[in-house]
Design a protein around this nucleic acid. Structure first.
Lengths: 116, 116
DNA sequence: ACTCAATATTCAAAAAATGATATATAGCAA
DNA sequence: TTGCTATATATCATTTTTTGAATATTGAGT
């Protein structure tokens, strides 16, 4: 993977991208509609942020029917994976990350159960 | 310290700020003239980047005569210190970080020895 | 084939970050 | 005080990033 530190930090320099990454790291996999719901952003905005995270090499995606699921790339360099882990556990109990996770869990009609 | 993850990542999203932080972490303390030399930037540019790192809580500074030395804030939250350490060791053997350190070591007339 | 739902992409406008230049401050030394 | 050096700050033009809105794509169902 072509993840240099430069790219890593600049792609995470946007609050919503950071929140997205943390949330995905905490849940293994999320689809666009779940992030749209939790972060309360317009769909094209989320899509573009996810595309940036993917282009930077941090996320991978898979399609399942109409949904596209994003997950953290498991083949990142060790130090990058560590940064993601340390960040996630560092912020887990703080706002807005804590609330994001709570909001996700309270979301009804999540896909995998049924639909978006 | 008021270092939230948001601030942390956005203040490090500029290549020169990241290089500065890594170099300072590797050397304990550096003055502005040393960074200006190594990074080959105009003095006001370096000063502003350092001010941003300081304002974000990552760096502290002390004056010694005409020079101002910057160092990593030792009282950062544990997870932030870990991020800095992991990043520094993650990039230490890569470019341009490796070369920056080499260039610093080859710098003559460093202060503390004599002057800038 | 047609339609709908989820996601992606394009493009112009708005907002934010950056750098050049000039100027200010602070300490030292004569 | 004056002058010099290291660093900081202010202003403005430029570049980069981000967003809103419209449109395109892709797959599922009929």
């Amino acid at each position: 993977m072509s993840v240099d530190a430069d790219t890593f930090f600049s792609v995470l320099s946007h609050p919503m991208r950071l929140r997205s990454l943390v949330l995905i790291q905490q849940t293994d996999e999320l689809c666009v509609c779940e992030l749209t719901y939790v972060l309360d952003l317009a769909q094209p905005v989320i899509s573009r942020h996810l595309a940036q995270l993917k282009h930077a090499g941090l996320l991978l995606s898979r399609r399942q029917g109409l949904w596209i699921y994003y997950r953290v790339n498991a083949e990142l360099p060790e130090w990058v994976k560590q940064l993601i882990e340390v960040t996630t556990s560092g912020v887990a109990s703080t706002s807005p990350y804590m609330d994001d996770l709570a909001k996700l869990k309270s979301m009804s009609d999540r896909p995998n159960q049924n639909c978006c």
